[in-house]
Design a protein around this nucleic acid. Structure first.
Length: 270
DNA sequence: ACAGTAACCTGTTTGC
DNA sequence: TGCAAACAGGTTACTG
């Protein structure tokens, strides 16, 4: 489900309902996520106040005064605000209850995770080696240009490496490359300095635009407030293999790159 | 250090 | 209609 815009949409939907409130109960129905959820999580958190929900890449950071709960939604996860006493459905693995409302974590494929740490989350093994935030000034043309030097890897695969930059998943990698006029299979090391600038700008624009639209709705994605996103109708290439390029009309090519569906226009992208 | 592949798991879509 | 294969928004772990 989620790439960065969807995670940010979720964060914005959840935060007003629970920041500054005390966690009253925690229902842990299934610990089997990507890594096991520690079984005493309720004892760790109950009675403590959630200060803020922050985001680092696609991780949500639920900050308490005595530690941080790291949450990742994986491929199919979502978190929604629900009445605490509503009946849980299939794959509703965890509820974080704040009085009459709870944040309900649902994840059919269980690729997500929920990890409690009392240390600085920035030093956590899953966070420490992440690249810059794509919307931050530290992600700029010079940075991407330097990082890409000497790399033979496909440009798209390079962009989706979270050590290079976080939050650029399959949808937005495809979209940004099309908007930048860059072929996804071009060697990262052959990216020119001017094109690096174009690409960085397109990544920022497409992510920012998607956040403003409330994320991309594919199948049944909903943000924390239960509302769908509206970006899907504005996608130029993702999910459009064989259909005409919206810029030149030539049928879009679709092929797997590093096991991920990749769509591009051989005329517009070089 | 880098690059490529398999793996985790369930639900939905596609094709015979 | 039924059934099996293919595929899905992510990331780590392992291999060479």
């Amino acid at each position: 489900m989620p790439e960065l815009p969807e995670v940010e949409t979720t964060r914005r939907g959840l935060a007003p309902h629970c920041e500054g409130r005390s966690l009253t109960a925690l229902q842990l129905r299934d610990t089997r996520l990507r890594w096991p959820v520690q079984s005493d999580l309720a004892e760790q958190l109950c009675g403590h106040t959630l200060q803020t929900i922050d985001r680092r890449g696609k991780y949500l950071l639920f900050r308490f005064e005595h530690g941080t709960l790291l949450v990742h939604l994986g491929m199919s996860g979502s978190m929604r605000v629900m009445p605490s006493h509503s009946a849980p459905g299939k794959h509703d693995h965890v509820d974080l209850c704040f009085g009459e409302q709870c944040l309900r974590y649902n994840d059919p494929r269980r690729f997500g995770c929920m990890l409690w740490t009392q240390d600085d989350p920035a030093k956590h093994a899953l966070i420490a080696h992440l690249g810059p935030e794509p919307l931050h000034d530290t992600f700029n043309a010079e940075y991407l240009f330097q990082k890409s030097r000497g790399r033979s890897q496909a440009l798209k695969t390079f962009l989706m490496d979270s050590r290079i930059v976080v939050g650029v998943g399959n949808i937005y990698a495809n979209e940004a490359l099309h908007r930048a006029g860059l072929h996804p299979l071009k060697a990262a090391g052959k990216l020119s300095r001017p094109k690096s600038e174009v690409l960085v700008n397109e990544i920022k624009q497409v992510l920012d635009h998607a956040i403003q639209r409330g994320g991309t709705t594919l199948r049944d994605f909903v943000g924390g407030d239960g509302k769908p996103g509206y970006f899907a109708q504005e996608l130029f290439v993702y999910g459009r293999g064989g259909e005409p390029c919206k810029q030149c009309g030539k049928p879009l090519t679709e092929k797997a790159v590093a096991q991920r569906t990749t769509v591009y226009c051989t005329a517009c992208q070089r």
